[in-house]
């Protein structure tokens, strides 16, 4: 079994979101970078569980980014995985990133490619499906459970208004969400071991980007809360009916 887990770095979930340079750049000063939670908690941990069950599994991690990503990659390696690959390029858009990952994966014989369902910064939810499209592999989005029996995977995926149990032959690409695995905290042995695991840096291939971010903006600030006395919830109902006209 050979598994590739696609990871990405994102600002910490509590990071202050602000922009500079005429709203063209995200302010990175003081921002803690973490592994994208969907990549970490669900994709990576599920892949680690597979390797724990079958230690002959080769588990590789891949990230597209500059040298500033190495600390986050080491954190991922502290959780598990044999080695990491960093494609040394600024991620321009989801198609560009997917093209770089597909290029590394092409012909490398991966049975499973795991991604998180989306990143918590750009919320594109696109890279996994694009890798599948580029490699002409099936893509299971929003997977909440994954089981393997020989060459066949059984998954539970979220569909409109419910869930589906599906089976599909390997190889395939999976977008992982809550339910796939439980969050783990790396132990000391993992953290020490991560330092000596190979982190290969490869140069990018020529690839297009289809889109480009022009500017950012923050949502309008709320006017402030209108408080209703606790002994008079009828007033809240009146406000929602007459003022907000929502009920």
């Amino acid at each position: 079994m050979k598994i590739l887990v696609c990871i990405s770095k994102t600002p910490d979930t509590t990071a202050k979101i602000a922009f500079t340079d005429n709203n063209r750049k995200f302010v990175t000063e003081g921002v803690q970078w973490i592994l994208n939670p969907y990549d970490e908690w669900y994709a990576l941990v599920r892949a680690i569980e597979i390797k724990e069950k079958d230690p002959s599994t080769a588990l590789h991690l891949i990230m597209v980014g500059g040298a500033d990503c190495d600390a986050v990659i080491r954190k991922a390696l502290a959780l598990g995985g044999d080695e990491a690959i960093r494609v040394n390029a600024e991620p321009r858009d989801s198609f560009y990133v997917a093209s770089q990952i597909a290029n590394v994966a092409k012909g490398a014989g991966y049975d499973l490619i795991f991604t998180g369902k989306e990143t918590i910064d750009f919320n594109g939810a696109s890279v996994g499906g694009m890798i599948a499209g580029l490699l002409e592999l099936p893509f299971i989005s929003l997977a909440a459970r994954f089981d393997l029996s020989g060459n066949e995977a059984t998954l539970i995926r979220e569909i409109e208004g419910g869930e589906e149990t599906v089976s599909v032959k390997l190889p395939l690409v999976i977008g992982c969400q809550k339910g796939m695995a439980e969050q783990r905290i790396p132990n000391m042995k993992g953290i020490m071991g991560a330092r000596s695991k190979p982190l290969k840096v490869v140069e990018p291939v020529a690839a297009e980007s289809f889109t480009e971010i022009v500017s950012f903006e923050l949502p309008p600030v709320k006017k402030g809360v209108k408080l209703v006395p606790a002994d008079n919830p009828e007033e809240l109902v009146r406000l929602l009916h007459e003022e907000a006209k929502l009920i």
Binding site: P11, I17, F19, I120, D121, F122, N123, F210, T211, E212, I213, V214, S215, F216, E217, L218, P219
Partner: peptide, 12 residues
């Protein structure tokens, strides 16, 4: 973007 904490404008 940023999980609802901001918007961005993207050029296709």
């Amino acid at each position: 973007v940023f999980s609802g904490k901001a918007f961005c404008t993207v050029s296709i």
